[in-house]
Amino acid sequence: MSTAPVRRSGLQRDILDLYRKCFRAARLKPEANRPHFHAFIRMQFRKHSEVKQRDFATIEYLLRMGKRQLEVYSAPSIEDVTI
């Protein structure tokens, strides 16, 4: 690709990777409920959008929380979410 690759910090990449993993996990949910999961994922990420870029401790904490939450919601027994 001709354009220069975007420079991202390790943490930023981790966040985007987690976001991607969440959407991958949502694909395993019943098709009718997938939009609920998508909205839920978006909300979970966006609600922390005011966290400062340099606030590494908070970001790392939220990342850990997100990963745990992904594990919990990945369980096949969870078929739907409500916001």
Partner: peptide, 27 residues
């Protein structure tokens, strides 16, 4: 950047392929 991830994921689904993270970042 989050929206872009979603767009690339939608493209994956449409064409039934899996795009590795490294390539996905370049789109």
């Amino acid at each position: 950047s989050l929206d872009t991830v979603e767009v690339v994921m939608a493209i994956e689904e449409e064409f039934s392929i899996e795009i590795p993270d490294k390539d996905a970042d370049e789109i």
